[in-house]
């Protein structure tokens, strides 16, 4: 998978060019990312519906920052959880978590800098 490229122009375009909302979104993402990852990890031991929902949440988070590749990973996991194909779920969760961590890193550097 290609590395996450931070495409501020595309994100801003979706937010109507509003820097203020953009900054707010980055802050929210960083604030919640650990909790979201924790929930996704725990969902592996729960019902498929829970895993489906947590994957869905992550999908929305990544899509907010125009990470199409990451959002696609989350969506695949979400759909497989929905149809009950859970054999490779732990592996998929690991990949997704790594991707979220990568995005978070980029955003963190950005917000510090």
């Amino acid at each position: 998978m290609s590395p996450f490229v931070f495409d501020k122009a595309s994100i801003l375009e979706r937010l109507g060019g509003d820097e203020e909302i953009f900054v707010m979104m980055v802050d929210m993402f960083l604030q919640d990312v650990d909790r979201n990852c924790q929930s996704l990890r725990e969902a592996l031991g729960d019902e498929a519906a829970v895993l489906q929902r947590e994957a869905h949440t992550i999908k929305a988070l990544l899509a907010t920052f125009s990470d199409n590749a990451g959002a696609e990973l989350a969506q695949t996991l979400e759909l497989r959880a929905k149809t009950g194909e859970l054999a490779d779920a732990p592996a998929r969760v690991d990949v997704l978590l790594a991707r979220v961590a990568e995005v978070a890193d980029v955003l963190r550097r950005l917000s510090v800098g």
Binding site: G16, D18, E20, I21, M24, M25, M28, F29, D32, T57, A60, L61, T64
Partner: peptide, 16 residues
Amino acid sequence: DDSEINLTLIRALVIK
């Protein structure tokens, strides 16, 4: 919305 980030975003957009 159960996701806080979405709530915050929508709220900001609505206020705008």
